[in-house]
């Protein structure tokens, strides 16, 4: 069958009341504020953009070196260098809004009050469609991962954001949470509309010649294909534990990886580190995703969510 006659595949998904034209979302911290890849990436394949993490005030971030390549992955300790909410609204948002994409702001606070204040400031910002609550950054001393490891703190951060906004609230969960299913349930009870996971895995590397850590911050976050199996497992566990839509991410480099997450229970996926490697990942992933759906007779990509089949039981052996 030629492409022209091939049946159309509906790639649209609904997440927390948002309609995404494709299930592919640009992951926070890997796609700038949104328009940096203009002219290079295929924005038509992008269902939504999760913007660079925002604090209330601008931050310098960690000293360099900030990144280190590992087998099939990378370590980073950027430490959320960002422009603060004022400059985001005044300088970044207008050009990102012009892209006409679903935009998810990603927020991080060093206190519960700061999370609440950010939610209120973003609530009526034209062109912001959802709020991803970063409770899982491994590279900041205040806020970040300490909120993501403790279910009480994660729930409270979700609650204050929920009270501050009518926008969809999407806590981004840490792989360091000991019980990811329990964590997902706690933020669900606290008013979350969806969850996204996983953030990077706290990790480190050492230069044996100089005997120094590879990163100035010593510890960084591991991302890229190296973390994918961990992420697929946690998405599966989170999706089983909650009724919330799950946005899965971790080293997705193409359609096969994305489908793995969808089958494990994700309603949409984020592409992060692979933006750095191959800006063509968007066009290729969308096109291969369509081909997969045609090949498998799947009319709507949302039908793939949680469609993993159980492993068949071993045949009984007669003795």
């Amino acid at each position: 069958m030629s492409r022209a006659e091939a049946p159309a595949v509906d790639l649209g998904v609904e997440i927390a009341g948002l309609h995404l034209p494709t299930p592919l979302i640009a992951a926070s911290g890997t796609f700038g504020y949104g328009d940096e890849y203009a002219g290079v990436a295929d924005y038509g394949a992008i269902g939504a953009i999760s913007a660079k993490g925002l604090y209330l005030n601008p931050r310098d971030g960690c000293p360099p070196p900030r990144i280190w390549e590992t087998p099939s992955g990378m370590l980073n300790a950027i430490g959320l260098q960002e422009v603060g909410i004022e400059r985001f609204l005044a300088e970044k948002l207008p050009s990102v809004r012009a892209l006409g994409k679903v935009l998810i702001a990603n927020i991080c606070g060093s206190s519960f009050e700061e999370y609440g204040e950010l939610a209120r400031r973003l609530d009526d910002a034209e062109g912001v469609h959802g709020i991803e609550v970063n409770i899982s950054c491994p590279n900041v001393s205040a806020g970040g991962i300490e909120f993501g490891c403790d279910p009480d703190m994660a729930a409270r951060a979700t609650e204050v954001v929920r009270r501050g906004t009518r926008l969809p609230v999407i806590p981004k969960l840490s792989p360091s949470a000991s019980d990811i299913g329990g964590m997902a349930r706690r933020v669900e009870d606290a008013g979350a509309d969806a969850v996204s996971l996983i953030n990077t895995i706290p990790a480190m590397a050492v230069d044996v010649e100089t005997r120094r850590p590879r990163l100035a911050n010593t510890i960084g976050g591991l991302s890229g294909p190296a973390v994918r199996p961990v992420a697929v497992r946690m998405v599966w566990q989170a999706a089983r534990a909650t009724r919330l839509p799950v946005i899965g991410m971790g080293g997705i480099a193409g359609a096969e990886d994305a489908i793995e997450f969808l089958l494990a229970g994700a309603s949409a996926v984020q592409i992060g580190t692979m933006n750095f490697v191959d800006p063509g990942v968007w066009r290729r992933t969308r096109s291969d995703l369509e081909d997969y759906c045609r090949r498998h007779g799947v009319a709507r990509v949302r039908d793939l969510t949680g469609a993993m089949e159980p492993f068949p039981p071993a045949p009984e052996v007669r003795r």
């Binding site: 700038g32 940096e36 890849y37 971030g61 360099p64 990144i67 990378m74 260098q81 750095f276 800006p279």
Partner: peptide
């Protein structure tokens, strides 16, 4: 990391 201004690794 990226050369495109997004990873903030090369500051």
């Amino acid at each position: 990391g990226c050369g495109m201004g997004c990873c903030l690794g090369c500051v």
